[in-house]
């Protein structure tokens, strides 16, 4: 009985730890067949603010966002764009005034994976534990806010 209680307590302690780890690292993903370099957070910001519209190959960059209320979108937005999605409305209206639409929006991480896998020039983000063989991860946004080009230990 004591062993069972101890095991249960250990599992309870382990569960939130695991769930937390899954939500902490964000993978920046592109189509599997493509090869582009995303060097820094400022460059990601340029792409997701739609100030940089073309890759070095002159292919159009197709950034993709999750819904504004998605926790991952909120986290990505705060870390890369320095503001939550709800504070970006005026910016997107202003950009629309200049003929540039905001990034495409998908409703789920699965939709993000499918969109990026199927769209030339696309770049998006998912929970690092959700990235699979349909896409290529080119960078990881770590818990301390830094960008790594080496896959970190995820503990998925």
């Amino acid at each position: 009985m004591r062993c069972l209680i101890t095991s249960l307590l250990f599992l309870i302690w382990l569960l939130p730890l695991h769930a937390g780890a899954e939500g902490e690292v964000i993978a920046i993903i592109i189509p599997k067949a493509e090869s582009v370099k995303v060097t820094s957070k400022p460059e990601l910001a340029l792409i997701f603010w739609r100030k940089k519209l073309y890759w070095a190959s002159s292919k159009r960059i197709q950034p993709v966002n999750l819904s504004p209320d998605n926790v991952l979108r909120q986290k990505f937005s705060l870390q890369i764009l320095d503001s939550p999605p709800e504070d970006q409305l005026e910016y997107w209206n202003a950009l629309y005034f200049h003929g540039t639409p905001p990034p495409h929006v998908v409703r789920s991480q699965e939709a993000m994976l499918r969109y990026v896998a199927d769209t030339p020039g696309a770049i998006g983000y998912v929970d690092a534990c959700r990235a699979d063989s349909r896409v290529k991860a080119v960078a990881w946004l770590l818990t301390d806010g830094s960008v790594s080009h080496v896959q970190p230990s995820l503990g998925c």
Binding site: N93, Y96, P102, P103, H104, V105, T119, P120
Partner: peptide, 11 residues
């Protein structure tokens, strides 16, 4: 008609 919240970025 273009809608700011719903861009279509496909080719």
């Amino acid at each position: 008609i273009a809608v700011a919240e719903e861009p279509d970025l496909n080719e």
